[in-house]
């Protein structure tokens, strides 16, 4: 029995549906309600619909994850501008952290980080973040 989008309340329910189980012509919207000016609303306050990919996750693609160390960060925002997956959270010109649901583990943020030692480093996915922070490398002397 084909379903109308209006009947679906829970995101989990859509994940179980096959491609032919939604009513033909059912429009899949980005938001639950009309939003007038998306550019003015930060991500946390947007009324995302379950059909927006923001509500899904690709974190299980990763083998290694970037870990963020606030102590060395200079808020240059290189990681923010070059992140292909909108996974670097930056608010009020300050870097806050990594969105692990959307990060695919490409490692660009670590490559472009200019600090010494880097304030973003790749660690194995299974490692605890606190454990990773404890084994952070020391400043490298220039030879």
């Amino acid at each position: 029995m084909a379903k109308d989008l209006k009947e679906i309340k829970d995101i989990e329910e859509i994940k179980e549906l096959g491609w032919d189980e939604l009513l033909p012509g059912a429009a899949l919207f980005s938001f639950r309600e009309p939003v007038e000016d998306v550019a003015e609303i930060p991500m946390e306050e947007r009324p995302y619909a379950p059909t927006n990919s923001h509500e899904w996750q690709v974190g299980d693609w990763r083998v290694e994850k970037p870990v963020y160390n606030r102590d060395y960060c200079i808020d240059c925002q290189f990681c923010w501008v070059f992140c292909p997956d909108m996974s670097i959270l930056s608010r009020d010109k300050k870097m806050i952290g990594v969105v692990y649901e959307h990060c695919k583990g490409c490692g660009i943020c670590v490559e472009v980080c200019p600090t010494n030692p880097k304030s973003l480093l790749m660690f194995p996915e299974h490692m605890d973040n606190q454990e990773a922070l404890a084994m952070w490398p020391k400043k490298e002397e220039k030879k």
Binding site: W80, P84, K93
Partner: peptide, 26 residues
């Protein structure tokens, strides 16, 4: 500057299925 640019609210969402490290997204 880049700090000012970082105040932008992205209108392109994560968890799309582009390859990791794809320049299209950037």
């Amino acid at each position: 500057n880049l700090k000012e640019f970082s105040l932008s609210n992205d209108r392109f969402e994560g968890a799309n299925l582009m390859c990791p490290g794809c320049a299209h997204n950037i």
